[in-house]
Design a protein around this nucleic acid. Sequence first.
RNA 1: GCCCAGAUGGUGGAACUGGUAGACACGCAGGACUUAAAAUCCUGUUCCCGUAAACGGAGUGCGGGUUCGAUUCCCGCUCUGGGUACCA
Length: 963
Amino acid sequence: MDYQFKDIEKKWQSFWAANQTFKADSQSSKPKYYVLDMFPYPSGAGLHVGHPLGYIASDIFARYKRLKGFNVLHPMGYDSFGLPAEQYAIQTGQHPAITTEDNIATYRRQLDQIGFSFDWSREVRTSSPDYYKWTQWIFMQLFNSWYNKDADKAQSIDTLIAHLEQSGSKGINAVSDDDTASFTAEEWKALSHDEKQTELLKYRLTYLRESTVNWCAALGTVLANDEVKDGFSERGGYPVEQKKMMQWSMRITAYAERLLQGLDNIDWPDPLKEMQRNWIGKSVGAMVKFSLESKVLSPESGAEVSYLEVFTTRVDTIFGVTTIVIAPEHELVQTLTTPEHKAEIDACIAQTKKKSELDRMADTKTISGAFTGSYVINPLNGAKVPVWIADYVLAGYGTGCVMGVPSGDQRDYLFAKHFDLPIIPILDIQNIEVEADPTKEGKYINSDFINGLGYKEATTVVIAKLEELGMGYGKINYRMRDAIFGRQRYWGEPVPVYFKDGLPYLIEESELPLILPEVDKYLPTESGEPPLARAENWKYASPKSSPKERTSEINEVNSFSFGEGGGEALYEYELSTMPGWAGSSWYWYRYMDAQNSTEFASKEAIAYWKDVDLYIGGSEHATGHLLYSRFWNKFLKDLGLVGEEEPFKKLINQGMIQGRSNFVYRVNDDEGRGTNTFVSFGLKGEYKTTALHVDVNIVENEILDTQKFKKWREDFADAEFILENGKYICGVEVEKMSKSKFNVVNPDDIIERYGADTLRMYEMFLGPLEQSKPWNTNGIEGVFKFLRKFWRLFHNDAWEFNVSDAEPNKAEYKSLHKIIRKVEEDVDRFSFNTSVSSFMIAVNELTDLKCNKRSILQDMVLILSPYAPHICEELWVLLGNEAGTLSYAPYPKFNAEYLVENEFAYPVSINGKTKMNLNLSLSLDNSEVEELVKANTDVQRYLEGKTLKKVIVVKGRIINLVI
RNA sequence: GCCCAGAUGGUGGAACUGGUAGACACGCAGGACUUAAAAUCCUGUUCCCGUAAACGGAGUGCGGGUUCGAUUCCCGCUCUGGGUACCA
């Protein structure tokens, strides 16, 4: 009987669906295990063969855990808001919801074919109102919270208001836009309602602020830093420019330290943790004030300024300061510039502006800057230090102002050399002849009271002195910026906010979800407003009656009296929508309780499932999704809504599957035009050729199917071929998988030809899960043959196949227990490729043994079932088990006794050279082994009178004799 | 530039804490079955010398080191992939 994979797979997929085999229990006496995949964006192209790699791995793991007795939650859903559907809508006028619906149907069909054990009853879609209601709800919680640094957590904004009412800004230790704000309780109370709101906005965890954003004109939207690559948008590759806009932001910087610390307690790949650490970019240093010679007025705030403040990580080098350099965009540039230097400074600023467009970052070699004519005073030695501007100083980091220490910093060094400024060595071992020496070794020189000290000591002493003088203090800076949260797009979650007198207010919780309105077109308006401005009646109608019982002063600032007549007033809704990462920053909680209409997930569900035990996805989300998710999780934890500080305990990055393109070589004629003759790869050196992509689906093992090639495209119908050894060999190159390169392999085709079980095993067999690798189908035959061989173990005519209940023999037990141990080890370290090999060996052994023992075969089916579930279900029933019981059957237990051997021969080397085979028994201790070895006649022969110095035994084996 | 990961036959890869390098699979070559092909099965397959074979020499990107013994550990390079980019 042949292996009819199509019938078998269809049968079991229907069975699982009909019986809800993989529905996770909300309550169970079994321990819980949560296996999660990064949910896909359902693109129009459908799944290609690279997408399921991670899903297959997680599915194997989930199925394995079920067999091991865990209550497994293994859900799937769709991150269904996003740009491509909207771009398509702009081009075709088709509503993105319809496109998305179609794409999801395709994804679902493709996923089902692979035989995943997802619990589809918990499916989520970020674009569904039932879902985004809660995304909006979380946004509201963020709006209503501030970060209390003393408690080191987010708290309700009411607690902040209460504090302000009580004692003003005194004693508030918050993360805010403006940490210099100070007023008394009386001053606070005297503020108008709008002034209070403006003030509070500086503390809210999501807030509106004018910020410099990455504006992509072609996409008509703002992009986050991680969506911009080298000045171009990640999606589409359009140019991105800097622009100032009023934007919603998320105060992720409040969590910088916790995001950093949390990395130490989670089992994630080190490179990924490292990426997040770099992104957060913690630097420990100090703030130092350099007094101005005379006080000036700030052009922005009008306040008196008496010093320039710098941030430095090397405060120990303060005696080597020869310049203070400020960013050309710094607010005091014009104020500090003396009339005789104005021309130079203006020229320099103009040049910077021109440059910053595109190549400011590419061009790091050119040194440009100018002297303002002003001086400041070094607080520790009173030296007069000139103030310069230079474009290597960024306005957006630290104070936009640095102290130039040419001896220790290469940029300062180049700057000093270029403008002929002094360079002061500050460490005795410093070598500064050709470049700066940033060493921390040696003893200080030219450095007043720290002369002779070492780095650590000097740093402590300098900071202490600065603090004593009131001219500085130790400070930690982070590179990470607050995350921009608004997008000027249609296909996203509406922000549940309306505006009154220019200030944002939340809509009522009871009014959620705020449904995305219909629009006539998906483009921005003529006046440049986001697409939502096109929606009719996109206005907030205040509730008919004022909310009751809003009498307290605290509540007063959160609400206001509505239109006099009741229900008359209409207010503008926020027009931007949320970014792609909003919906994906909490979705793992929704799976815990996907149908809940009163909470984002019930307390009980969250208390039971807690967190994700295993998360599988690509490392490209390192500084996006994975960071934002950790941020929201910590916030939800602060509010007591969830229990765990970190959402994803263990994370595995699956490697990317790259495309593998095939080429044919068209022979050119003398004029360089292409002929219709194609030369095989090995002979192409003898001709002038042009390489053309050829569809990888008509190439097998690099051999072109010339008949299919002629049919592939009309103009190749009468192509001729110059063959080698009767075959046309194609060239190969690894590239991104894309339609235009004809290297896209669709999993449907593979399943059609070999079945889902083969696809699953082959994707694992291809190589280590975490490694990126090109897809090629060259080895898939081997996996298919293996499954067929496994099938034949149960259906072979060569021996009468009767399941026997007899006691298995030693050899059969040995094969079985070898594979039990191997697969357990492999699954635990996600080395699925090596277990596939081990299966092949085990099945070969059992075939050779003509094994028909029920217990052995049954255990084999169990062990293989996570990898190839369909065939195993079929064989499980064949062995007399009830249909559907396989997925929760107990996993076979490993017993080491079956692997013990009493006697074996192995090579032993003498002084490192392999010389002889020894037959010895195990389970002796080292001294006994030594005696035995000495008594061995073979060894005697080699010794030839010399003494045996050492017997090296490893894991009970003699490896080497030292003579 | 900086940070991280990697480099093993014709190919994908294995060797888990230093212990017979090349498991397993693909491909290739030869053979069996067949009128033939496909399918299946068997044998060989790191390279070099040589042969009927045994055997001998080299060998895990390159150059050193530690060790009885290194793909594995250490130092210095080369190349490839990923991240990041004037962060003071």
